[in-house]
Amino acid sequence: MERRKHIRYSGDVLLEAVHIASGARLGRVVDLSVGGTMLFCPTLPVEESVWVCQLVPASPGTPTEAVSLTLDCLWTRPASDGIGGWAGFQIVDADDSQRIALARLIERLPTPI
């Protein structure tokens, strides 16, 4: 499968993507890799829109450091119930320290499916 290279959650939602400029919640992280992420978004972003985001722990107190990334929305797909949907993002920019933090974060995620 094409997405198999991605690290994915097999447990509960751990991370949220937050739009840095507005502080709005962009979505829950469904899967994450060094190249990109898939979010479940309450409001679907526009395809090809670019977001400067921070991945933060969904639950306060989770010992996970925040990672700042610039994401480019590649595709969106509404949920069957019409409430929100999934969106695939490509990481288009991250400075070296954030890439290292992302790699550390991925290492600590649950085992891929």
Binding site: Y9, S10, G11, D12, V13, R28, V29, V30, D31, M38, L39, F40, A58, A79, G84, W86, I113
Partner: peptide, 9 residues
Amino acid sequence: LNLLGRFSS
């Protein structure tokens, strides 16, 4: 449902 990444526990 976990697979969807949409719902909390």
